[in-house]
Structures are given as structure tokens and as C-alpha cells.
Amino acid sequence: MAIQSFRTDDDIDEVVERYSSMVYRLALAHTKHAHDAEDVFQDVFLRYVSRPRGFESEEHRKAWLIRVTINRGRSLWSAWFRKTEPLSDDMVFETQEEGDLYEYLKLLPQKYRTVIHLFYCEDLSVRQIGEALGAKESTVRTWLTRARAILGEKLKGGFPDEQERL
């Protein structure tokens, strides 16, 4: 007979287990640097503890984490934008295609990288991205279009330009 025990501190374990990859990936895409991503990662989850208790829904919780990750990434970047050390490559690439994509992504403006990441990695709709970034949907579409166009010019075979989820 299986028995499971639980305690209310499970909340912390659960939320970190569920969202650690999402927050880390977004922080990495946003900051381009593993060390910065780790700082943002910790900061986001520490802020999670002091948020108002309870979320209206799981979607609400996820949106909160995305929004705070982006905001903290912005703050971190603002504080360190003058550093001149070269960006480290912390990614592991399995194909040349991936390596090329990553190199070109790093050259994109931060807002373009972020919308590309939220759309293609986190599968957010344009509306959800707009809410997370505090931007109009039309603005998000413009950023996505421009980011795709830049990447498409540089990458062999272009960059997928699929129908946007609304």
C-alpha cells in the first residue's frame, strides 16, 4: 500500500521543480550569460516567496514568473551593460545549425530575443507575450516579424515564419 506524506513547504519545492527550467531558459535567453541567468533565477524565486499569497490560477502563476524574470533580467542588464568581458558560451550545440542560430540570436536586440524565446520555446501566444512584456499585441507582432526577418536573412533556409498564435 503506497503512502505519501506532504507538508506545506511542498509549495516551494513544487514551484521550483515545475518552473525552474522555464525561468532559467528565459533568463538565459534574456541575458545571454549563464552567470547572469543564475542571478536572475535566484532573484525571481526569492521574489516569489514575498509575493501576495495565492494566485488566481496556474496560468496566473506562470505569467507572474515570466513577467518577473523579464523585469529582473532588464534590471540586471541595466546594471551591467557596461561590462566588456566577452559573453561566455554556455550552450551545448548538437548541430552547426544550432550553433549558427545561437550566434545570430545573440546579435538581436534584447526585446527581439525575448519574443522569439517566448513564442518558439515557451509556446506563448502573441496576446500572452504582450501581457508579459506590457506591450501591445501589434508591437509584439512587429518585433516577431523583424526578428524573424533578421534571422531569416542570416540563416541558411531562413527562420520559421508560421502563423502567429493569437
Binding site: 527550467s21 531558459r25 542560430l101 522569439i116 518558439y120 520555446c121 540563416l155 541558411k156
Partner: peptide
Amino acid sequence: MSRNVYKEMMNRAVPSAALVRKTKTRMKK
């Protein structure tokens, strides 16, 4: 390029176990 190239590449970027453990500890404190 497939739309999954980016997702598959980023999905391999995961926080280290030490980072996750340290973060949980700080959160509980």
C-alpha cells in the same frame, strides 16, 4: 530551419542541481 531547432537547443539549458538546491534553501529561509 525547423521551428523546433530553437526549442530543442534551449531545452538543453537547465539550471544546475546545485543552483536549484541553493535557491530552494534561500526561499525557505
